[in-house]
């Protein structure tokens, strides 16, 4: 599923969209607030749906190989977090939906879970 399709389904605001990055193809999703979960069940080309916005979420994403991040409940990260995501070329979105609804809508549209590889 493309990132622009995800943005549309989640009625999301784009916070970071690296300019030279073409529309990403997202293969799977992971809904989590616990960063070790993201690291443990890491998978390539995945979307992270989370309620946390601090800077180490970006570092976790970079290390786990997460392709893009959606913050739920309209949460917005601070400037340093936005800056680091830009540097690492990790797109950031913010959706008004909660993690349950965001997961449900994407699942309904055909996106599936990250598998532990």
């Amino acid at each position: 599923m493309t990132l622009s399709k995800i943005t549309e389904i989640l009625e999301a605001t784009v916070i970071v969209r690296p300019a030279d990055l073409e529309d990403l193809n997202i293969r799977s999703a992971c809904s989590a607030d616990l960063m070790s979960d993201v690291l443990y069940y890491h998978s390539i080309d995945s979307l992270l749906i989370t309620g946390l916005t601090q800077i180490n979420v970006i570092r976790t994403a970079e290390i786990a190989g997460t392709k893009a991040i959606v913050f739920v409940l309209n949460k917005k990260p601070d400037e340093r977090t936005v800056e680091l995501a830009g540097q690492k070329k990790i797109p950031l979105l913010s959706t008004p939906f909660c993690m349950y609804t965001a997961s449900g809508k994407l699942y309904q549209a055909g996106l599936r879970s990250s598998l532990n590889d």
């Binding site: 607030d33 616990l34 960063m35 070790s36 979960d37 690291l39 443990y40 989370t50 946390l52 601090q54 180490n56 979420v57």
Partner: peptide
């Protein structure tokens, strides 16, 4: 509450 301390750190290192 910051997303850490889930008791998966050491198992994850070992894994």
């Amino acid at each position: 509450e910051m997303g850490w301390g889930a008791g998966m750190g050491l198992p994850n290192m070992k894994k």
